[in-house]
Structure formats: structure tokens, C-alpha cells
Design a protein around this nucleic acid. Structure first.
Length: 463
RNA sequence: UCCUCGAUAGCUCUAUGGUAGAGCACACGGCUGUUAACCGGGUGGUUGUUGGUUCGAGUCCAACUCGGGGAGCCA
């Protein structure tokens, strides 16, 4: 007898109709009557459940009607067209075996739970509809991202998780150490002596693979990283986690315009791919999580992203004067309320904001001819805000060294980074995409804790 | 870190300062095509913790703990 998955049954129904098959999975609910009953079963291969019909001709009928939610079962039977309107077919069971019982205290009920409660049972929540859909889409989106870059000849580079450079400059870092924290070795000044540490120096978890991937960019032309990053920021919001995944492409012989073209193409590719390959999940999100989701995503795919410079953005915001809590002034960074106003009220679609003042951006961003702004871009999207930050990098050694000096950075710490400008440096550009923020945008989920399997946030690392 | 809201049965939530409640889950009974099945009766409580006000506190006050939302920072 052929063992099949629920996904196969849904995708190739014709080849299984009126045939005897075997399926296995977990009970979602049992509805029983005096002489017959229904088991709703999910086998993990597919978002939707399979309805199984059984009656008291089965020897273990009395046990089956008592199966608890999430019991593991193996079912044999014939796939038939269903008289019910809620499903096209059902499995008429000739045998149902209990593989593993589920304790009656199983905490997931059939009714709705709050996401807050489900976070406390992060080991069980993938069995719920919402999380089944979220993590299936997360997997597909990751694959789509790899395919997008691989199809374009980008080389996937694994940059280190443990980094010896304490100069990535993207936020607070987690220290990595094997020193005895109760009795750390001290130098003559009484400072902790990290030369006695495992790596012979102070090390941290990476906050960005960008500087490292730039080195491979100068060898492979077009490259990308896709891996975990860590920020020890004490920020407690629905959009921040201490451990999250980031995609960072980097292109040689490319300027800021090419960078933005790549970002726009990538966003559209991921959306298209998930709509095509996870239609049931996306339908679920549109119906139960975010009613405007399809309209928004289709609008993104079909529209050209807007482009404005930071200076133009400031002019628009000053003219609109929409009662902002924070003042709008050239030289100050855009606040969340300003970003959302631009993308949600002014443009009503994704918008690239470019050419920020050099004083509010990182040292490696390429200085524009006006000597005041840098070739940086942020992509703002309705609902989420900033989803991508990128720039053309400063390839001119003397300008880069001058910028570092202005910001008080020590040249010797960046010796290998500066070497790239000495040995055949070229224009190059890249960006960073927060993977979880992309998933939030794709699914309509509003809390980052609900798109990471086991989220790590300030004060929370259960599981 | 700051501001703000919240914490009552396993879950989701009601309860004017005066007897602790419902739906779901769970166990039991009923029902010949159910659809988060339905119907019946049943089990289930240190009201987050500590202290205070009061004849009397789930309810009012204070601190703490945990959680949500907003802000800062960012992806």
C-alpha cells in the first residue's frame, strides 16, 4: 500500500482518488456521533488538514473517538470525493492505529489563542495554524532569496559569527569569552587581560557581515551573506530581536542606482515566489491576520518604487507639517513617524530615500561631491518602516581615511579593510535586509517574536 | 532605558468595595455526514508577588515581577 503525504493528495488528487493509501499525522480534532465520526488530521507536509471518516465497523471505534488532540496516528483507507462542502475529498478509513498518545493536558485548544500565550509554549506553537503558515513561508522565503542571488551569479559567502574586529560599528555587541568571570586575569593596569582569552584577544558575536563580505566582493564580484547576526541593544519593540538573520549582498563595479535596482528586484521576487508557492498560507494570512495583505503585496509587485533624496524628504515633511512630535530639520535623522508618513501617506508604496547627511551615516559610505551627503539609501515600506539600509561604499583610500579620522576611528583596526582600497579597489555597493522584517511584511505578522522559532530578546532566552 | 496599558480556572474573558462567574479545554452521557460540530449535566480558583487603606479588597493605594503597545536605537 502506498504511503502518501497530505500535500501529495492535495496536489495530485486524481492519481489517488478511489485508491487505497496510507497516511500518518497528528489529530487536530475528532468529531464523533453514535456510529461514525470524523478525524481532522494534519501531517506536517501541508498547511491544510485531511478529513478522515470512520465508523463502528472498525474494531477500535471506541478508542478512536477518544483520541486526544495532537495524538500521532497512522491511517489506511480509500480516498473518496467528499459530500461535505468544506473539502473536496476525504479518506474513508479501513484502519486507524495510534502511534503516540497525547496527554489530555495538551495546552493548545481548538479555539483561538493569543500570540502572547503561544510564545510561552514556543515548542508547541508550530502545531497551530498561524505558526504552521509562518514557518512554512519563512522556509520558502529563505530558499527564494538563495535562488534569486544564485540565478544572478552571486556567490554565497559565510562570514564569521565570532568576530575579532570590535569596529563593525552597528550597535552593542555580545562578548564571546572562556575567561573565568569570577577571577578574570588582569594586566598591570588592573584591566581584564583578553590576551589570555581563548582567541588571544577580545572577541564578539557579529553585528554585520558587511565589512567581511566586501573582501570577497573584491574577488568574486557579486556576493551575498545570509546568516545570523546579534545585537546586544536593550531595545524592547515588536521589530527588534537580539538574534536575527540578515541578507547582505555586495556588488563590485556598481553604484547606488544598481544597488537600489537589485533591492527592488529582490523584494518583488520574494513576494512573487511566496504568492506562487504558498497560496494556502498566504490566503490564510490575508483572511485571518491582515485583511489588506494581498492588496498591499500586489501593489508592491506592480508598482515602481519611489525615489527621493533625503533633502527632498525634509522639504516634503516641512511643507506637510503634519503635527509631528519630533522636529524636521536638515541634518537630523528621520524619525519613525517621518518615515511612515512618507511611505504610507505621501507615496503609499515603497520609497527609497537617498543621499543622507554624512554626519548621521556610517564611515564607509561614499562621500558625494557636495561634501555634505553620502550615497546611502534606506528603503521604507508601508506598515513596517525601514526594511533595507544600504549604500555605495567609499572606494577612495584618501577620502576613507579622512572620514575615519573625522570620526575618531583608528586606522590600524581596519588595516585589512583599507587594503581593499589599495589593491585594485573599485566602485561597489550593497545593502542589508532584515530577514525577519521581510517575513513580517510578507505575512502581516506584527511582532518579530512570532516569526522566529525561538526568539531571543532582552531578558528572554527560554527554550 | 523612558512613557503607557495590563495580569482572575489549562486557554479566552466577565464580575458597582459586600456569596468567585461564563465559553472553550478536560472526564462522562446523548446524537446516522460533521466542519474550531452540536445538546445535557460535571470537574476545575492561594484573583502575578509583597505590603498598605477598610468592618470588609479581584476591585482602592505603593513597590516589585512578568507581558502588551508606543518612543529611542536599528535590520
Amino acid at each position: 500500500m502506498e504511503k502518501v503525504t497530505v500535500k501529495q493528495i492535495f496536489r495530485e488528487t486524481e492519481s489517488f482518488l478511489d485508491k487505497e493509501i496510507q497516511v500518518s499525522g497528528w489529530v487536530r480534532t475528532v468529531r464523533d456521533s453514535k456510529t461514525f465520526g470524523f478525524v481532522e488530521m494534519n501531517d506536517g507536509s501541508f498547511f491544510k488538514n485531511l478529513q478522515i471518516v470512520f465508523d463502528n465497523s472498525l474494531a477500535n471505534f471506541d478508542e478512536i473517538i477518544k483520541y486526544t488532540i495532537s495524538s500521532a496516528i497512522i491511517v489506511t483507507g480509500t480516498l473518496v470525493e467528499s459530500p461535505g462542502s468544506k473539502q473536496p475529498f476525504e479518506l474513508k478509513a479501513t484502519g486507524i492505529e495510534l502511534e503516540g498518545n497525547s496527554d489530555p493536558e495538551y495546552p493548545l485548544q481548538k479555539k483561538r489563542h493569543t500570540f502572547e500565550f503561544l510564545r510561552t509554549i514556543a515548542h508547541l506553537r508550530p502545531r497551530s495554524n498561524t505558526f504552521s503558515a509562518v514557518f512554512r513561508v519563512r522556509s520558502l522565503a529563505a530558499y527564494a532569496i538563495h535562488r534569486f542571488f544564485q540565478e544572478r551569479g552571486f556567490v554565497y559567502v559565510h562570514t564569521p559569527i565570532i568576530t575579532g574586529s570590535d569596529c563593525e560599528g552597528a550597535g552593542e555587541m555580545f562578548r564571546v569569552t572562556t575567561l573565568d568571570l569570577n577571577h578574570p586575569p588582569r594586566d598591570e593596569k588592573g584591566q581584564i587581560d583578553f590576551s589570555a582569552d581563548f582567541f588571544g584577544r577580545s572577541t564578539n558575536l557579529t553585528v554585520s557581515g558587511q565589512l567581511a563580505v566586501e573582501t570577497y566582493c573584491m574577488a568574486f564580484r557579486n556576493v551575498y551573506t545570509f546568516g545570523p547576526t546579534f545585537r546586544a541593544e536593550n531595545s524592547n519593540t515588536p521589530r527588534h530581536a537580539a538574534e536575527f538573520w540578515m541578507i547582505e549582498p555586495e556588488m563590485a563595479f556598481a553604484d547606488l542606482n544598481a544597488d537600489m535596482e537589485l533591492a527592488e528586484e529582490m523584494i518583488k521576487y520574494i513576494i512573487d515566489d511566496c504568492l506562487a508557492n504558498a497560496p494556502e498560507e498566504m490566503e490564510f494570512f490575508n483572511s485571518f491576520i491582515d485583511n489588506g495583505l494581498f492588496d498591499r503585496l500586489i501593489n508592491i509587485v506592480n508598482s515602481d518604487f519611489a525615489h527621493i533624496t533625503y533633502t527632498e524628504a525634509i522639504e516634503i515633511l516641512k511643507k506637510e507639517n503634519a503635527g509631528f512630535d519630533y522636529p524636521v530639520d536638515w541634518g537630523k535623522d528621520l524619525q519613525t513617524e517621518h518615515e511612515r508618513f512618507l511611505t504610507e501617506k505621501v507615496f503609499k508604496k515603497p520609497v527609497f530615500v537617498t543621499d543622507y547627511p554624512k554626519t548621521i551615516k556610517a564611515f564607509y559610505m561614499r562621500l558625494n561631491d557636495d561634501d555634505k551627503t553620502v550615497a546611502a539609501m534606506d528603503l521604507l515600506v508601508p506598515g513596517v518602516g525601514e526594511i533595507i539600509g544600504g549604500s555605495q561604499r567609499e572606494e577612495r583610500l584618501n577620502v576613507l581615511e579622512r572620514r575615519m579620522a573625522e570620526l575618531g576611528l583608528i586606522k590600524e583596526d581596519y588595516w585589512w579593510y583599507l587594503d581593499l582600497r589599495k589593491y585594485g579597489g573599485t566602485r561597489h555597493a550593497g545593502f542589508g535586509l532584515g530577514f525577519e522584517r521581510m517575513i513580517m511584511y510578507l505575512t502581516g505578522m506584527t511582532n518579530i517574536r512570532d516569526v522566529i522559532s525561538f526568539p531571543r530578546t532582552t531578558g528572554a532566552a527560554e527554550f
